[in-house]
Amino acid sequence: MTVSRVAGSTLIVLLYGFLLIPLVAVVAASLTAGDFMRLPPEGLSLRWFARFFQRGDLVEGLLLSLQIALVTTLVTGVVALMAALASQSLSRRLAVWFQIGMTLPLLIPELLTAIGLLFFLYKIGLGKTVLGLQIGHIVMAFPYCYVSIAAALRQIDPALDDASGSLGASGWQTFRRVTLPLAMPGLVMGAVFAFITSFDLYTVSLLLKPIGGNTLPLALFDFLTYEFSPTAAAAATMSVLLAFVGVAVIQKLVGLQRAF
């Protein structure tokens, strides 16, 4: 009994370790004071982050990624909120189908969506443009945003709408004073998901990238093919940090268990 229990615990620790090892490796490697990518790091320093910001190609990638992620967040936030509000007036059955439709980009492989968009955007004259890339990111990030917001709206007691109306509030007043404040945690969570999804997107960016423009993941991939230095780890660490900020925000607002 005890032997099997020890074995079980070891297995569990190993499995969680398996999940976290690459993340720890990236962060640890970026903090090294030494000249090579080595673990454990040889002393601690932030010099590789400084080096990252001296690399024009990586910084340009970072800026483009931030810009696209920001626009993606704003657009998906508004469109997804509207769609989620619309879904509330659907019957239960229809709402389920609507949700499946809205999450299609999540259910089909990114590569296929990217290929379809490559052809389609070319056809309508948006091939290899920032706008085209932006559209691709919006499509890919939309489902995460929609699911979070729709879940938040479902938590709201429908009687609150009636209560507000019976007290004299118009539809817009009810939205602004009741629905929106109550949906806010879901909205923020959706925004966090949308931003992070867009920031990390690779395949769609690869096929749709504008001429001469690279997002951070693309620039990082290129960088890695000819140089294996802690600068890359520093670039990757930014992504990890972003994710941890995101997880913290979500935990603070809604709790992780309800989010995933």
Partner: peptide, 14 residues
């Protein structure tokens, strides 16, 4: 409903 001036008390309070 918003113009009827009726006060409603809901079962789950709302």
């Amino acid at each position: 409903s918003s113009k009827r001036d009726f006060g409603v008390v809901f079962q789950n309070y709302a």
